[in-house]
Design a protein around this nucleic acid. Structure first.
Length: 891
DNA sequence: GACTTCACG
DNA sequence: ACGTACGTGAAGTCA
């Protein structure tokens, strides 16, 4: 039995906003209306178990009602910005819930709901309308119940026809007449002055309707007669205004508001963002949500073929026949665990033809599955998968190559919205409104509770996934085409994902002994620092605990508090540096921190990651994490190996070639981000500086301070360098002042002087912000896109953040595009020339190789050449190359 | 698991 | 007046 819930979004949001105490999350976003709305929604879903849910919103301020009466809703206070900023958040949250939302320009939420209740009446479906507005009572019918919020939002009063009679003695239709007579101050509907609820009810009980009253004005007496006669027209118009329009030309159908349960993982992520902790706890993450979906097309409707062992060899043949005769399919390979190098293989599934096939993990390596392995390895057999990068690695460690990947749903989802978090298949599927794919957390549990379910459950889950992949591929292809990202995915990101997998599989050799002896030195330094710190503190304590350290420094020793954190005193390096003159314990703590970091993260951490079989570490470059298009590196992170300070830089001595007599060769782009800025801003001065290959920070100092090259002192150059960094980050006077330890005024002056000189840069910064406001997103040179929903926020913090992001992302993102291009070219070049040299790492603007002696001279020339010619800009690209017997020496 | 700190570009 | 530089990952503490 279907049950619809129709929610008046604007009305409930308003109620919630005024009923709830002010509430903001840590970034200053107001969330009280969203919170109130959400609690109400959760309660409704739980208690009513609807099959269809819709939230309707008012689309615009001007509706058809204004055509006859321009003062409609006039005099109403403007929506406060604290509330209006919450609407986009609410709408996004509804998407996470998987709940439909309608709005249609020219109509109010009431009208949309009125139209749907008419459908409910016609189709004989039960509907519940939820609103804060009693006007909606006119929609009540035998099938339609209206729930009006009472104080707050969680308590409601329900009205069926019987309850209407009981409370008001009116039919739903008469409720319109009621408002016609008494008016409504909040909507600026006049009614008849002096007629309130009591009088209006009395009149209606007597004469039945506005028209009835007007026909019988002669029966009235005194003042009342006068008023009614005077305001006849007002009453008629008021009734008209109060009538909900029930014929809105909706293009959607009832099917579009079908609700099939929420994806708990996706929702919990949304709640985390909003910092709704109590609601997080209320979410049943153990397996409810999407899994319970009753309305959704169940997986059982798929023709699912489970292949558990050799006895199913016939089915496997059917799969391969289907794959041979039809290109369109969806492939899913399940590797459990975060690290693909150590992941367990759970199974593989493919949706093709009229069926979905799912194979248990063990069968993949069995002799009878050889034809499947051959298909996976065949470059000429196209594959359409999800996270094929991870699959590639997991398969490779089992000796099964994966080739011919032509599409990847995860990669596409990332390109279509790189900020959209985790890009899980269940999340992506939900966004496309597909039959529910259960969240992995719901199927496997998470963390310590991870458990593979029984084979049937597992294989059915995999089957649903392959089916979802097949469906999503078509949709994403069209979207990528529409957003101009075809080249980006097919010619850059997809080829790159194979290159990355090869680099990761290759790994980089780590000299364990080197690391251990470094560890020994660190150990001695640490224990010495510790005992001197205890001595100076007069007590032993946990120096690693910011809380305990704060107590010692600020309570016991009475040092001045420079900065506070959310939880107490701040003791970060910035603060400690300012405290150095006050007490000799401070530099010791800084020293201890430095050594402890090196020891725990880089010596012990790295040692744990060395594979005993190979003596190498194998990082996992993630291609779908960074919002700007950069890569990230995990298990271990090899993109943050120390270099700035000599003590830490020594760690690099442990990164060595994997073959005797080879070298580590590293090449890095010089000032790639500023060169990109010169190109996209077209600033003549900046371009000139790079065309002449000048020292950019010195040149900036010369221009900003108006001095000659000889007159630039180290301090001026340092300031200019900080300004250049600031420019790339989306400058603010506050940020620059923090960095240079100067006042905000001085920083603002620097920036002004900079913009005076580099006017093209100034114009770019203004233009890009405008573009972001106009389009809602910014792009890189290769059309990579990043949406900036907060660019129009009324909240200063949110908006400023979005503006800096608008300035930074095209720069950082284009630089990322360029080095990715270089990597794909480099891989091709090494293969074409049949070189033995191997690309091992990428560190944002640097590529690291291992090179045999006989290729050293060639590579010293080839690598910079490929990097510099990856793309043609209005300024030259430059790459510097170095080499040595280990990474430390390649400087 | 949230928070703080710090390593890199 | 608002309070942040952009983008990451990992380790440690503490509740």
């Amino acid at each position: 039995m279907d049950k619809w819930i129709l929610i008046d979004g604007n009305s409930i949001a308003n109620r919630a906003f005024y009923a709830m105490p002010p509430l903001t999350n840590s970034s200053g976003l107001h969330t009280n209306a969203v919170y109130g709305f959400t609690t109400m929604l959760l309660k409704l879903l739980e208690e009513e178990k609807p099959t269809h849910v819709l939230v309707a919103f008012d689309a615009s301020k001007i509706t058809f009602r204004h055509e006859g009466y321009s003062e409609y809703k006039g005099g109403r206070a403007k929506t406060p910005p604290e509330l209006s900023e919450q609407f986009p958040v609410m709408k996004e949250l509804l998407q996470s819930f998987g709940i439909a939302q309608f709005e249609l320009s020219g109509y109010e939420a009431d009208d949309i709901i009125g139209t749907l209740t008419r459908l409910a009446d016609e189709q004989g479906v039960d509907a519940l309308v939820v609103t804060g507005d009693k006007d909606m009572l006119q929609l009540v019918s035998p099938k339609v119940t209206v729930a009006v919020t009472r104080k707050g939002v969680s308590e409601v009063e329900r009205y069926s026809p019987a309850e209407m009679t009981e409370r008001y003695g009116l039919t739903p239709q008469q409720f319109i007449d009621l408002k016609g007579l008494m008016g409504d101050a909040s909507d600026n509907i006049p009614g008849i002055p002096g007629v309130g609820e009591k009088t209006a009810l009395k009149l209606l009980h007597e004469y039945g309707s506005v028209e009835g009253v007007l026909e019988h004005t002669h029966e009235l007496k005194g003042k009342m007669k006068e008023k009614v006669e005077q305001h006849k027209d007002d009453a008629v118009m008021s009734k008209k205004l109060a009538t909900i329009f029930r014929e809105v030309p909706l293009t959607q159908t009832a099917e579009d508001i079908r609700y099939s349960g929420y994806d708990a993982a996706r929702l919990s992520e949304a709640f985390r963002k909003l910092e709704f902790k109590s609601l997080l706890e209320r979410l049943d993450l153990s397996g409810a949500g999407a899994g319970e979906a009753e309305g959704a097309q169940p997986a059982a409707e798929l023709h699912t073929v489970l292949i558990a062992g050799e006895q199913d060899a016939g089915q496997l043949k059917a799969l391969l026949d289907a794959l041979a005769s039809e290109e369109e399919h969806g492939l899913y390979i399940e590797a459990a665990g975060e690290n693909p190098h150590t992941a367990d293989m759970l199974g593989i599934s493919a949706a093709v033809g009229g069926a979905v096939y799912a194979l248990a993990a063990g069968t993949l390596e069995a002799p009878f599955a050889e034809p499947l392995r051959a298909w996976l390895a065949d470059e000429n057999k196209p594959k359409y998968g999800f996270d094929t990068h991870k699959a590639d690695l997991a398969l490779a460690w089992r000796g099964i190559p994966l080739r011919g990947v032509k599409f990847d749903v995860q990669l596409a989802a990332y390109l279509l919205d790189p900020t959209d978090g985790s890009q899980t298949l269940s999340g992506v599927a939900a966004r496309y409104g597909l039959p529910a794919v259960q969240a992995d957390e719901a199927v496997y549990g998470k963390g310590a509770k991870f458990k593979v379910p029984d084979e049937e459950t597992l294989l059915r889950h995999l089957a649903v996934k392959a089916d979802a992949v097949r469906r999503i591929v078509q949709l994403q292809r069209a979207e990528l085409d529409a957003t101009g990202m075809n080249k980006l995915i097919y010619e850059l990101e997809l080829p790159l994902s194979r290159v990355l997998a090869a680099m990761e599989l290759q790994g980089i050799a780590v000299a364990k002994g080197e690391l251990q002896s470094l560890g020994g030195e660190l150990e001695r330094g640490i224990s010495e620092a510790v005992s001197r710190i205890y001595e100076l503190a007069g007590t032993e304590f946990n120096i690693n605990s910011p809380k305990q350290l704060g107590e010692i420094l600020f309570d016991k020793l009475g040092l001045p508090v420079i900065k506070k954190t959310k939880t107490g005193y701040s003791t970060d390096a910035d603060v400690l540096e300012k405290l150095e003159p006050y007490h000799e314990i401070v530099p010791l703590i800084l020293h201890f921190r430095q050594l402890a970091k090196l020891q725990s993260t880089y010596v012990e951490g790295l040692l744990k990651e060395i594979r005993t079989e190979t003596g190498k570490v194998h990082t996992y470059f993630r291609q779908t994490i960074a919002a700007t298009g950069r890569l990230s590196s995990q298990f271990p992170n090899l993109q943050n190996i120390p270099i700035r300070l000599e003590e830490g830089r020594k760690i690099r001595k442990a990164f060595v070639p994997s073959e005797p007599g080879w070298y580590i060769l590293a090449a890095d782009y010089s000032q790639i981000e500023l060169r990109v800025l010169a190109h996209i801003s077209g600033d003549e001065r900046l371009k000139e500086a790079f065309i002449r290959d000048m020292d950019i920070h010195t040149k900036t100092a010369m221009d900003v301070f108006g001095v000659s090259a000889e007159e630039v002192d180290s301090n001026m150059r340092r300031s200019a360098k900080a300004v250049n960094f600031g420019i790339v980050y989306g400058i603010s006077d506050f940020g620059l002042s923090q960095n240079l330890n100067i006042t905000r005024k001085e920083a603002a002056q620097f920036i002004e002087q900079y913009f005076d000189v580099f006017q093209g840069v100034k114009k770019y910064m203004e233009d890009i912000k405008m573009q972001a406001r106009r389009d809602g997103y910014v792009t890189t040179l290769l059309e990579r896109r990043r949406y900036l929903p907060d660019i129009k926020a009324s909240n200063f913090n949110l908006r400023s953040f979005a503006e800096r992001t608008a300035m930074n992302t095209p720069i950082q993102g284009t630089a990322a595009d360029i080095i990715k291009l270089a990597m794909v070219r480099m891989d091709e070049t090494l293969k074409e020339r049949k070189l033995k040299s191997r690309m091992l790492l990428q560190v944002h603007d640097e590529l690291v190789f291992e090179v045999p002696e006989e290729e050293l001279e060639l590579m010293k020339q080839l690598v910079p050449q490929v990097m510099e010619s990856a793309i043609e800009l209005d300024v030259p690209l430059r790459a510097d190359v170095n080499y040595g017997v280990n990474w430390y020496e390649a400087k």
